[in-house]
Write a protein that binds this DNA or RNA. Sequence first.
DNA 1: AATGAATGAGATTTCATTCAT
DNA 2: TATGAATGAAATCTCATTCAT
Lengths: 207, 207, 207, 207
Amino acid sequence: MTELLSRKDRERQAKRQDILKAARVVFAEKGLHAATLDEIAEKAEFAKGTLYTYFENKEDLFVSMLEQEILDFHEELKLVLSRDLPPAEILSQLVRAMMTAFDQNMDLMRLLSQERSALATCRGGDQMEARFLPHFHRLNAAVASLVRRGIAQGAFHRIDPERTATAVFNLCHGAAMSSYLNSKKVDSPGEAAFITALLLQGIATGR
Amino acid sequence: MTELLSRKDRERQAKRQDILKAARVVFAEKGLHAATLDEIAEKAEFAKGTLYTYFENKEDLFVSMLEQEILDFHEELKLVLSRDLPPAEILSQLVRAMMTAFDQNMDLMRLLSQERSALATCRGGDQMEARFLPHFHRLNAAVASLVRRGIAQGAFHRIDPERTATAVFNLCHGAAMSSYLNSKKVDSPGEAAFITALLLQGIATGR
Amino acid sequence: MTELLSRKDRERQAKRQDILKAARVVFAEKGLHAATLDEIAEKAEFAKGTLYTYFENKEDLFVSMLEQEILDFHEELKLVLSRDLPPAEILSQLVRAMMTAFDQNMDLMRLLSQERSALATCRGGDQMEARFLPHFHRLNAAVASLVRRGIAQGAFHRIDPERTATAVFNLCHGAAMSSYLNSKKVDSPGEAAFITALLLQGIATGR
Amino acid sequence: MTELLSRKDRERQAKRQDILKAARVVFAEKGLHAATLDEIAEKAEFAKGTLYTYFENKEDLFVSMLEQEILDFHEELKLVLSRDLPPAEILSQLVRAMMTAFDQNMDLMRLLSQERSALATCRGGDQMEARFLPHFHRLNAAVASLVRRGIAQGAFHRIDPERTATAVFNLCHGAAMSSYLNSKKVDSPGEAAFITALLLQGIATGR
DNA sequence: AATGAATGAGATTTCATTCAT
DNA sequence: TATGAATGAAATCTCATTCAT
């Protein structure tokens, strides 16, 4: 029972997507503040005023764009998480997928950590936060449930699943960021292998 | 018994510190961009123009302030790193110290990750980056040398020391950020224990 | 019967002219530097920001305004120069026309000599200079060709045409300036007669 | 009956001269407005505040400096004007002297025409004007009296002496300015010869 | 007399947002 | 719905001038 949209609505959606695409490019390059609606409008091939018929204001445009990206990211991870493999193997593939995604979208990931809390201080910052947190929570919950499965199967220690999920995210995100800021070419597979090993075995020898 | 600085110079230093202190508060609350010199000047109880006799411009003030904070942070960690204890124990204490520091200075840590790369795009961003990277590298190197010591003593696997150092930082910073953004009261000791365990043993049971 | 410009474009041109007119008055009264965009905007009955949709910045506005005036001045002189009269008579009329023009636009002529070289030191001064010099050269060349004609016809000595053209300009401009600065009401016809006589006969009796 | 100054007064005068000398350099390079007291103070090797014990304010410093220069200029011309030679010859030497002076002090001459009227609009502009005009009038009067002498001796036509004096000044000043603005190396002797010839014989052949 | 830190008014410029067409 | 001209608040930075030492 798919929702069918009228031609008008479909065209409107398409234009909205065009604007989001232009916004992505400009925001990624300049950041939330330095990006101007003039530039986005020009890139989207609309007049500046037109943007306001699709988005409330600059911040709404920004957040809408980021939201879209997070959703896409989530979709990619869901693919991996749903595979029928041993938890440790899924975790390994998950880390690889995350690193790849961060790597390919580093500009946006940077934006995310850059502006996410900055938005909180802005006008209507609370709403912004409210729009983001659910996405993050769902992402985290998905990974946490993988950990829970691993524990249930005896593959993982009885470790806090939520914190572990967060740790996975932080390790991947942080590694990508560090490489990026050091202007090193990111060795994604290498980083992923390292992180996976660290996560699974830790660093202690047990002696 | 030589005076190192003349009275005038000492007073000037003290005033400079006052301005940095005011800047810290305002920047932490508002972020680099939303903070205004008007507000900083008012809080520092100086005229706006006076700030320009101490700092080149807004960004210089911002970076000077952050630099100071990083240096302080580094000092704290050095204390821990120099203790005469088994590497695993030092690592454990290090994680606790980091978590505490992040916890108590979350506003600034947020700033750091927020604006660090934002600065890169700004006017003179390269200089900014150049002013920060050394501090980060030194920090990372200090932790890496602890890992190296652990490996030499047979306490740690032959794991990449630099990447491990980065991982420690990312896990702590990320955990603090996550708690902060979730508006959860940060359970520092709990987080620290979790991270230490994760780092040392990993999550896999080996089965 | 094609419309050369759309209604919108025509209106925009008209508004641009309004701004230039207001700028002329304010700049003439205050000079480039002391004039403020606030005052110009108010006089033009536009918001300050609006000026920036018509001109790049203050200097562009200033130079655009002066350029317009020079062009108008040149047009007036061309009328005289193209008359079918003996060279000496044309010269006489030219001097009168110059004096009248300087007289009626003393405020601007003052500006011109005031700021012309001042602009050279400013940001983008070279461009400014580049925008002005051609106008001056064309003006000078037009008068020089009159002198050349006079020489060819045997009416004038074999005197350097370019220098003579410059001398004509300098005598008129200087006389107008001198009167102006002495706050004397300028006796244009009297000055013109004097300058013409000086130019044609010189002051020496030949004895 | 020379006025003797105490050592203190002499030292004060010397310092005043040092400041004027520094001011000359900076004003000539930057113009009245763009020049800063900071730069002048530094060049004079005094603290900024010290300038205010010697001059009322920036404008006073500026005008004082220019006044000094005009006086020096006047002295040079007086030497020529007092020579015991035929008027036409004196005029010729005068033109040469003027051209040389303008040539060597073009930066200042430019300043003079640039800022003289600009000052009129400034705060206390009238006083400024009042300080300059007498110098100009005396200069003009000195040349006019030469013309009068020439007329009395039958060497010159019965031409308006004041206007003629002004014309001499304008021709020299204008020629120097024109060369300067065209960035041409000024051919002072050539210009002087041209101007002298123009002044004495005019351009008409009499046919 | 000399200093130079402090001041704060004031200028230019940017840009998100509005609104008449 | 689309436009883009107009707006004007706001922000950074400069610098002549003052004044306590």
